[in-house]
Design a protein around this nucleic acid. Sequence first.
DNA 1: CAGTGGTCTAGACCACCAG
DNA 2: TGGTGGTCTAGACCACTGA
Lengths: 253, 253
Amino acid sequence: MPDADTIRLDDLLTDIDRTGPVPLYFQVAQALERAIRSGEVPAGARLENEIAIGKRLGLSRPTIRRAMQELVDKGLLVRRRGIGTQVVQGQVTRQVELTSLYEDLQGSDHEPSTRVLEHDTKPADEATAEALGVAVGSDVVYLRRQRSTDGVPVAVLENYLPVEFADITTEQLEARGLYQILRGRGVTIKVANQRIGARRAHGDESDLLDIDRGGPVLTMERVAFDNSGRAVEYGHHCYRPDLYAFETTLVAK
Amino acid sequence: MPDADTIRLDDLLTDIDRTGPVPLYFQVAQALERAIRSGEVPAGARLENEIAIGKRLGLSRPTIRRAMQELVDKGLLVRRRGIGTQVVQGQVTRQVELTSLYEDLQGSDHEPSTRVLEHDTKPADEATAEALGVAVGSDVVYLRRQRSTDGVPVAVLENYLPVEFADITTEQLEARGLYQILRGRGVTIKVANQRIGARRAHGDESDLLDIDRGGPVLTMERVAFDNSGRAVEYGHHCYRPDLYAFETTLVAK
DNA sequence: CAGTGGTCTAGACCACCAG
DNA sequence: TGGTGGTCTAGACCACTGA
């Protein structure tokens, strides 16, 4: 039987739009997430069972279940068989997104800017060829950029792209993030394998990041694939560790 | 119509066990993942549509769909409406797991070992209290450990646990990983928020990690929650950057 | 024992894409 | 126009939990 502390979701979810293009499960998930983040549904609260919520909203159990699964995957909810569903105690759980640094910085109310340090077409070395799935020595686009936020340098970005992107201009790169440019050309990044580490700053990196020579930098190496499964970007980047870090939410399966 | 290069999955999936406790979707996902990782289903290959696979295996479409969704979430498959499902081109896609460093190292054929540097009960400072959801100044368990693999130091681990775990012994900590000990007590880690960064080594860290004084270290801060949504571990760790890095697969939603 | 989430089925309609 | 994945329904049975 539902306990006294079970949260009911009456008025939170009255605005379901069955005509629009937004999936029902998504609308429910969004409304519930909003209620949790606003504190309307407090941390640790126990939710009603799936059938009851479905009945109240006039939706089937699978639809409700899928909505809740979204929030489980985001680390906001925890489910236990025979027990029920509860809100995770942790404070505002951040979301990991597959975005570029540019959009990351945009989202946090800062004004990102880019200086293109190098922009060439050159033959692929072994690592690049392997990552992009092209022949060693075949042409690839090479980019080296300095990324700043509010005028302070944050990262040095090195990227390799397939030759098909040779017509991207330096002006475009100074105005927008790489992923935004790719999306404008109909290329959607769907999957990325990345590796995060640390090392000393090399060569001109200390000057470009305005840190001590040989000081620590945070590094990220990434291979990104589009929605057809093809590798479209390979990069290794380094970040000023006092200005940037990677936040993640992990969920056990 | 299916192209000539469409992969059929006849013999790969003949061993479905409907009686055992293993979910059907999981059996299918596992068999398909094995086929992909072994190269039997090559990178870039196009799979049959969901209905056809279901018919061949005698399973419903939702079950097949869920199996494929597992692999999409792992970054092994990419789906496009109106087109079909393909294997991602990238080489062996690694899996991010919510495990402790100890199990990480165990899995990679090395012999991890632990030296306990400190093991106390002490009052929680503000950050710890906030992370664990306890009152400032209330007792928490504090651990500081040096983790090595094949005798080489890899990390210095600092952890805070609720007082309920005060009876964990130093002997246990030297023999097993923290998450293994917790699991043995019926505590399952379900969600974790973590932050990965870099900085200079402080204090005795350079000695403990056998690196240069003030050299770069990779850092990770983590709050972990059990299956009831309660915070059960807060830690900040540092790693030797030449011996350890974090690998992740991100999937756009 | 009753209540919960975990799994599974057999359909249905739709949006999108290629030819 | 035909084939694909994306969504949704209305049931069903099971495994696990707690009282």
